[in-house]
């Protein structure tokens, strides 16, 4: 790269923001959910997160640099982010060999088969989850409940009974769901931790509010209409739909992915709305337990189209007749 001229449109400003700095700050934003996940689900969760992240980083180093030097493994941090996000959207009881396969599918098929960072159409972590979800549906829908404080004080890894996730029919109070004390994927249960990460990312200017708002908003509207038609309309039903499954996590960490979401501001809003609508339709009407994955993957494919139709008007341009 360095021996070539880089030609790009103006303005040519060299800022402190680089791919590397952004990626490592996203890792910081993911810290609260990771910690919450480990606290809630124990050693199993830690192992899944570490395995996913390390596998992704090693594979990225092998693909890009064909060696395993520390600098290659650390890279630009994008593999670490994808790997960590992937770990966070898997059930804590996922067998580690499945996690390795998932990370490999995400990095190799989801990312580098399309040409690497910046060229991948689909979110690598979601490609990986879709793949393992379809391959081992039983393992991917076996959840276990969160640990209680006493589990922690007695021993770290405990045999936990499997239990239903909220979308699988378990009954939970809204407060439990807000704190994340429900069965679910490692990083997806605690709304509180997700919001902490979201605040950090927004304050640091790494994510645009439009896509998350469009996503959560459209999901809320669909939930409202559905519950109204079902004759049991209540604000708690809507809050429940928003906090169940991976919707909030996706809103903050997945549909804001810079590579696989639209560039334009209007486009991001539309993208978010589309993701929300498809997610809810899948959740409510299709025979799949969760719609977040396919909802976002489907809209990922629409991104070039959205970008094309939402190009902002050039300053001073007049509408041609």
């Amino acid at each position: 790269m360095t021996d070539k001229f880089v030609v790009g449109p103006s303005p040519h400003v060299l800022g402190p923001k680089t791919v590397k700095s952004v990626m490592w700050e996203v890792v910081i934003a993911l810290a609260p959910v990771s910690i919450a996940g480990i606290l809630l689900f124990g050693l199993d969760a830690l192992l899944v997160l570490v395995t996913a992240t390390v596998t992704a980083m090693i594979l990225e180093a092998l693909v890009l640099h064909r060696n395993l030097k520390p600098a290659s493994i650390l890279g630009d941090g994008s593999a670490a982010v994808s790997g960590l996000i992937l770990g966070l959207i898997l059930p804590p009881s996922t067998p580690l060999w499945m996690v390795v396969i998932a990370a490999a599918v995400g990095i190799l098929l989801g990312k580098h088969a399309f040409g690497g960072l910046g060229n991948n159409i689909f979110n690598p972590a979601l490609v990986a989850r879709a793949f393992v979800f379809m391959s081992w549906p039983v393992a991917m829908t076996t959840w276990h409940g969160p640990l209680s404080l006493s589990d922690w004080t007695t021993r770290v890894s405990v045999d936990v009974a499997s239990s239903a996730s909220p979308l699988g029919g378990a009954q939970h109070g809204l407060m439990e769901m807000f704190l994340g004390q429900t069965a679910g994927s490692i990083g997806e249960t605690s709304a509180l931790a997700i919001l902490l990460g979201a605040i950090f990312l927004i304050v640091r200017g790494h994510i645009d509010w439009r896509a998350p708002l469009g996503y959560v908003g459209s999901a809320a509207v669909v939930a409202a209409i559905y519950s109204f038609l079902g004759g049991d309309f209540a604000l708690t039903t809507i809050a429940w739909q928003l906090m169940a499954g991976g919707l909030l996590f996706a809103a903050v960490f997945m549909i804001t992915d810079m590579v696989t979401s639209p560039v334009t501001k209007t486009g991001r809003l539309l993208f978010g709305i589309g993701c929300g609508l498809i997610t809810m339709v899948i959740r409510l009407y299709l025979s799949a337990p969760e719609g977040v994955t396919y909802g976002i993957l489907f809209m990922n494919a629409m991104v070039p189209l959205i970008d094309r139709y939402t190009v902002p008007k050039v300053f001073g341009e007049v509408k041609s007749r």
Partner: peptide
């Protein structure tokens, strides 16, 4: 042994064909 069910499903056809073409 749990094999990857996805290959028996339609998405697996695309993935396999794509990899074989590549």
């Amino acid at each position: 042994v749990d094999m990857a069910l996805v290959f028996a499903l339609p998405p697996g056809a695309f993935i396999s064909l794509g990899l074989m073409l590549a």
